[in-house]
Design a protein around this nucleic acid. Structure first.
Lengths: 144, 144
DNA sequence: TATAATTAGCATCAAAACAGTGCGAATTAC
DNA sequence: GTAATTCGCACTGTTTTGATGCTAATTATA
């Protein structure tokens, strides 16, 4: 099930903030700036750390920085880090362990599968910097 | 929160089935064909009925038909019918009743808002017939 | 007219996902 | 040494979701 929860919401806020402000930023400073529960934001950033999208700096005056330039961080990576990779199979139970027997023309898996893939492809083609460039929506290719 | 649940999954299956088979189709016949709980599919089709995406035919030999040609039924309508319109605001509580005070440059609402709008636009531009045309993904503009 | 098939509308229930919090340990600038 | 901060684990209450039950209304058909 593909969804955009508050975790992703908070993650995007934090990442765009990091993209727009150089230097180390602590969880506290970000959570105070936006109306985000501090502890929850900390959890989110930890997940982003584990996915190597941010780098942590422990101790006093510590915090987080982007692990890569915002133009190289794709939305698909962010969503996957915070909500897990979407299970692109939607007909669990109707196939054996490895793969669906009639995958090639499976009329069951088909519709939602196509839809999810389309959305996912859009996320793969859109970088964090594209979001930061708001509100120039036109900069995002898939958004036209 | 934009999400694609099993309701949408089942709905898309039913609708693509209706798109591919002329004539009235009962809930039973569809649910028996795919591994879908009969009663749940009935609920989904009732929602699609209320949104005028399908027409019902009551009584024996009854069932459902598409209310419009599949080329005129947009995915956004389907998702909205089955999961409700996505609340495009993500910073509830931080603004007063009507609108966010700093909406124009609101750095909070921005990222997830842009993302949701992008996905929604894609759904608005993709018709049911495009999904039915699987696996020719190239036919879907936003999918390139 | 009787019957069976089917949608319509109500309500309910269990399980899963989600949002948010608590606590203490480890690390590090100052 | 102290204060600030990340790190890791667990936990809880609420909401959402998936799924089902029951009965009434409708209608083709025998």
């Amino acid at each position: 099930m593909l969804q955009l929860t508050k975790r992703t919401d908070y993650g995007l806020i934090a990442l765009t903030h990091l993209a727009g402000h150089s230097g180390v930023r602590s969880v506290r400073s970000i959570a105070d700036l936006y109306p985000i529960p501090r502890r929850l934001l900390a959890e989110v950033l930890k997940d982003l750390l584990h996915s190597h999208l941010v780098e942590s700096h422990r101790g006093a005056q510590g915090g987080y920085t982007l692990a890569r330039p915002p133009g190289e961080i794709m939305l698909s990576e962010i969503v996957e880090a915070l909500e897990g990779a979407p299970s692109l199979t939607s007909c669990e139970g109707s196939h054996t362990e490895n793969s669906c027997a009639v995958e090639a023309v499976c009329p069951i898996r088909s519709p939602i599968h196509v839809l999810r893939q389309g959305i996912w492809r859009m996320l793969e083609q859109t970088a964090l910097s594209d979001l930061a460039g708001w509100p120039e929506l036109a900069r995002i290719p898939s958004f036209r």
